[in-house]
């Protein structure tokens, strides 16, 4: 016997417009997750205009600021925090590199989706800098699970490429830091 398809009524769904934000890891948590037990020292790094040009050319991705958020890991390795801007999404992520410059891990720290152009304003983005899981943020509402029309992770992958170019240009030749970094994490 062929089973007839069960059909329930055609209904009208209620649409909601909203932003979407999730906080996964603080910078400190990501550091511990990627380099358990290691100590990390902030490494002040500002790319020269020439270096910026090379990074943009090599990675094919724009650079909004020459200031790089990077930490040196005791025992070798580097930890970067960077963000990428899509059409609707603003993603802060961390990249860990081992002493040879190989990617050790990529973790998303925060993810925000917004509509109506606000994502392109520095003021909107600024409200998220320095946030940790201790200060969770809610946009209009925190949507637990969204499905449909997969958002691409292309921007994050491009960002990782950019981090690797920065490493190559500005850090690869640097002597690895000795233990006991003095700067705060």
């Amino acid at each position: 016997m062929r089973l007839a398809p069960v059909f329930t009524a055609t209904t009208a769904l209620v649409a909601s417009t909203s932003g979407y934000a999730t906080e996964y890891l603080s910078v400190e948590q990501a550091q511990q997750a990627m380099f358990p037990g290691a100590s990390l020292a902030v490494t002040p790094l500002k790319l020269t205009p020439e270096q910026v040009k090379v990074v943009v050319k090599k990675s094919g991705v724009g650079l909004r600021s020459p200031v790089v958020r990077v930490w040196a890991v005791s025992g070798g390795g580097w930890f970067f925090v960077d963000d990428v801007l899509g059409k609707h999404e603003f993603i802060t992520y961390a990249v860990g590199l081992d002493a040879t410059g190989t990617v050790r891990g990529v973790e998303i720290l925060t993810y925000r989706e917004a509509y109506g152009g606000q994502i392109n304003t520095p003021k909107w983005r600024a409200q998220f800098t320095g946030k940790t899981t201790a200060s969770p943020l809610l946009l209009d509402q925190d949507i637990a699970n969204i499905t449909g029309a997969t958002l691409s992770c292309r921007h994050v992958m491009e960002g990782v490429k950019r981090v690797l170019s920065i490493y190559e240009i500005a850090l690869a030749a640097t002597n690895l830091p000795d233990a006991a970094p003095s700067a705060a994490r």
Binding site: L13, V14, S16, S18, K87, Y115, T147, G148, A149
Partner: peptide, 15 residues
């Protein structure tokens, strides 16, 4: 709870 994106309008969700 799950929400699905509108098939054409970005930023619109259906519960």
């Amino acid at each position: 709870p799950v929400q699905v994106r509108h098939p054409e309008k970005t930023g619109v969700f259906f519960a």
